[in-house]
Amino acid sequence: MSAAHIQLDRQGRLLHFLTVEGLTPRHLTEILDTAESLRGVAERRVKKLPTLHGKTVVNLFFEASTRTRTTFELAAKRLSADVLNLNIATSSAVKGESLLDTLRNIEAMQCDMFVVRHEQSGAAEFIAHHVKPHIAVLNAGDGRHAHPTQAMLDVFTIRRHKPDFPNLSVAIVGDILHSRVARSLIHALNILGAGEIRVIAPRTLLPAHIETLGVHAFHDPRQGLRDVDVVVMLRLQRERMEGALLPSEAEFFQRYGLTEERLALAKPDAIVMHPAPINRGVEIDSRVADGPQSVILEQVTNGIAVRMAIMSITLGHHARPTAENV
């Protein structure tokens, strides 16, 4: 709850974007509407807006990521910000530098925004607590906790195809237990009043008391996928196999993988989503991933506009004469 608290100013405006939890429909709708306005920028002659001209955005990645980092970088550049990419996962840990020391060092480079990915839950919030007041912090994924920009690009993509949220049925399939994507998406869908959220997973990959998040749990996709409007497949983290949570990739695909036959159980115009990168033949069949109902690549495109929206909204709320903060 404290993450929800620290990311808002006294007027309830977003200063940081750490978690979807605790936000209002108004917050999320403002992000989605702003992203809608930014979507057309990529189709213009000049794919750039002057909004963050003169600002410096630091991608602070303590955990490997290509796609998320790249779309954050592109989002910042399309808003005319300067971007610094720091993959400090191993190097500083090896040198014994603490997170706070790393932070102070980068702060001394006079930055305006930190985009943080870390394998520890709560890392982005910790940084938001300790940065200077003019710096905005965005969570690009922290442990199993949250991945709020992914959730926003997912609901943005859903809204473009299925705007009638009260009558919407969404199924999230796969490793719910370890998924920050699933957690953030469930919160976002609930806040926006989605009609029904289902999670479909083996018992070993479902958190206990998942129903308290306002979802219906299914263990059999034949029941869970019936008549849904949206199917969100999660990436199966291969390292989970070693923890004896799953027998094998092949068996997972056989029981839960999204095939054309299983997709046929959903509504005929259902869309298929995936946060990418996909494991072909593990959680999703290539014919579905590349098929007409797949919006997986559209999610990537939308991710840029959504991240541009979140960057300009949060940095805009830090707006004030700069001298007093330096």
Partner: peptide, 9 residues
């Protein structure tokens, strides 16, 4: 922008 941010609508 550096004084009032982005218009919400």
């Amino acid at each position: 922008f550096s004084r009032i941010g982005v218009h919400p609508q």
